[in-house]
Design a protein around this nucleic acid. Structure first.
Lengths: 221, 221
DNA sequence: ACATTTTTTTACAAAATCTTAACACAAATA
DNA sequence: TATTTGTGTTAAGATTTTGTAAAAAAATGT
């Protein structure tokens, strides 16, 4: 179950966000001032925390910093009223993962959350993945084939990780798009194919283990 | 995505049900008389159909019977105004899966729907299907006969899965077309025959277990 | 601002698969 | 038995899907 905490004092905004997230069947919890927010965030484990910068009691920056100092590693998205560069930098400095400027569309917010969840799940899974003669180190985004380092782009890397984690399963393009790109493309996109093509060229030139499942997508043997 | 069709002429009840189901994030469609209901149920694939017994146009029993005759295998829940044993028995006779008496609470209805969905998903979502010396792995789209891998095309694979899930039942071409091809039988298409032929050649060269049911279609013993 | 890298889109070729149509054959019916 | 109806089988042609390269767009670095 995905748990999200909203720390936001403006009720109207809080309600709106809560409504959208419930629609997406996340488990939602809310706090309406800084103190309460910090307490909730500390006492329970959330996958994502939406944190308003301007709050009564304790402001968002402080909360974020304190949480990180406590060792909290939830994915924190800062919410702020204006697109000000200063807060953005400061937010990331105190340990936020992302930053959304109000007003934002539900779609935008949910896209950001999905990115966060993806990143989170990558974080929590195995640090080092071994597949055949490949060694994939997630923290440093490095890949070795027979101890020879291979340079992959970010998307190639993420695709490889996802394939390995789900090895054996046929993965549809939609599934790959939602899980790696973070949202669903409308219309038909061939991005996945192109990335598979490149990945094959880099790590699997004989196309031995990245198999095409015609009509569905791809799978790793 | 779970799709539910409500066939109910009383708007107030329809609205109520629809509201509850949308809350549970099902995809909901509605029809307000028998003819429309039958058409919608036939033309599209629903996981669950909620079917009022008393309807203008065509009554619930008729619709249910006709749908079953067409090979429709949605989970059908009959709705009736009074708890009368006669209708209950009759309903099950014409092929309904469950029976709910009005007035019912949202909770009761959703519980019944969940039962239906579970039943449906149990059948279709088995990771591995075993039939005689065949092993069909749905997540990877692989088929083994006596541990020997057999390469099937997507349609062949889907056909095999459907046959196994419905083993023992005679399946009409129409049913196979609607459920596997996603459109309704158009009179003289013999696509199914060709695919059966190919499937037999691949997994059943002796034509032992894919039997022809003359005048109807095919079945797996 | 410009150059470089990465990602996405687009177009076209190649391949696999699906469908149609035809004919052969078997089963049912008169 | 002859006729009709339904199915098996085949192969050509149509369609769909994927591979690949290259251009366009977006992101990043200098």
């Amino acid at each position: 179950m995905t748990r999200i905490l909203i720390i936001e004092d403006e009720r109207s905004i809080q309600r709106l966000i809560e409504y959208d997230l419930l629609q997406l069947s996340y488990e939602v919890d809310s706090a309406f001032d800084g103190i309460e927010g910090y307490k909730k965030a500390s006492s329970s484990n959330y996958n994502v925390i939406l944190l308003d910068v301007m709050l009564p009691g304790m402001n968002g920056m402080e909360i974020c910093k304190k949480l990180r100092d406590d060792g909290n590693n939830s994915y924190i998205i800062m919410l702020t009223a204006v697109d000000d560069e200063y807060n953005k930098i400061k937010g990331l400095e105190v340990g936020a993962d992302d930053y959304v400027t109000k007003p934002f569309s539900p779609r935008e917010l949910s896209a950001r959350i999905k990115v966060g969840l993806r990143r989170e799940s990558l974080k929590t899974s195995l640090e080092e993945l071994i597949y055949q003669d490949l060694r994939v180190i997630q923290s440093s985004y490095e890949v070795y084939k027979k101890n020879q380092k291979i340079d992959l782009t970010l998307k190639e890397f993420e695709l490889l990780v996802y394939l390995i984690i789900n090895k054996g399963k046929a993965l549809s393009r939609e599934q790959l798009l939602t899980n790696l790109w973070g949202y669903s493309y409308d219309g038909d996109s061939r991005v996945v194919d192109v990335h598979i093509f490149k990945l094959r060229k880099m790590i699997d030139p004989e196309s031995n283990f990245i198999k095409t499942v015609r009509g569905i997508g791809y799978k790793l043997l």
